[in-house]
Design a binder for these strands. Structure first.
Lengths: 192, 192
DNA sequence: TATCCGTGTGTACAAGTGTTCACTAATGTG
DNA sequence: CACATTAGTGAACACTTGTACACACGGATA
């Protein structure tokens, strides 16, 4: 699995990886592959599971560091970006998988995103920042937030990790996106 | 190019297509490929160019059909969905290319999206619906709109084209996303 | 009419592919 | 100690792959 991620990190697309290629990168003979996976789709699915762990770690850190409501967006985005940079290959895999070849992987990633969105909704409810929204509207808002961040992720993965200027631009833009969404949420139904 | 799109439409990922595979689908001998393209990346780039045409046609139809401001979002989303269904393979290619293997294709698609967003900004300015926004804020709003729609596109491509119920769900959700964004835009700076 | 030029063909080759099978070395369990 | 399980090995198979080359046809041009 690490070998596959490494190759993805080097710019390859997961869908174009072959068994021999992955085992070669892993420094192991091709037949060993079958000791662990039935095929590449299977490997992809197990990567999705690990991706879930990465996302949960990120949520935990966000919850620990975002104590008060102001700067909530800024802090969260910063944490997100730092995790995305630290696990570049993982997030590359996630971005690729969203439109990938394996329906199962696709559905897995989508489901991780839904989980993430619902956790976000819980947190916001707990902070009592959105009491005027119905549960359904809050879910929608969080869904939109997660999608926007996911899209920013593809921006981020498109620039080199040490291009500080570009990363900063992406950070600022993502923050403004989220601010715009939350302004919308604040005036939802009452103002719209 | 049609052959490549056909294969993508059948669920394959563009990055995993080979020259022989494409020419086989085209009903032509492998060597003929080189008469038209230098390699698969080259083919991808030419597909991006054609994608531009598809998007422009879509914009033209939207401008022709969205006459008055109310129902603007509903109509636009409907037109978008019908185009996405009618050119399923093209939009699949677009969704794949965003996180694809070829940096050039990636950049090409991104650039088409930026163009789309800027055209949208022009239209909104012309309709004088957003006079209170600075040009920069309007651009950001349109960027977010285009991204949200693009993400809905991946939802749409994930369900079968004739699953009316699911398509309807996606349509409604996309509309609500855009409404939320525009409520945010309406109260931007004044309300945020 | 003769001559290009764009497109497609057939053959060929070296390299890479997924998958199988029988074998081996290390590990932990009774 | 003997034994089962796990992870890795190496050879072999039948294909598939990208790419090169010389060749053939048909329509446009001179």
């Amino acid at each position: 699995m690490t070998a596959a991620l490494t190759l993805v990190g080097k710019g390859r697309h997961f869908a174009s990886l072959g068994i021999r290629e992955v085992t070669r990168q892993a420094g192991v003979v091709p037949t060993s592959f079958y000791r662990h996976f039935r095929n590449m789709d299977d490997l992809g699915l197990q990567l999705v599971d690990e991706l879930g762990l990465v996302l949960r770690r990120m949520m935990r850190e966000a919850r620990a560091n975002v104590l008060q409501a102001d700067k909530l967006i800024e802090e969260s985005v910063a944490i997100f970006i730092s995790h995305a940079q630290a696990n570049r290959s993982f997030f590359l895999f996630m971005a690729q998988g969203l439109a990938g070849e394996s329906r199962a992987v696709q559905e897995g990633i989508r489901s991780e995103m839904r989980f993430f969105a619902s956790e976000l909704a819980n947190d916001l409810r707990r902070l009592r920042l959105v009491d005027h929204l119905t549960d359904q509207d809050l879910d929608m808002t969080c869904d939109l937030v997660v999608r926007s961040v996911a899209f920013s992720l593809t921006d981020l993965l498109g620039v080199s990790a040490d291009d500080d200027y570009q990363v900063e631009q992406i950070r600022k833009r993502t923050i403004r996106f989220l601010q715009l969404i939350f302004v919308g949420a604040a005036h939802w139904q009452s103002g719209g």
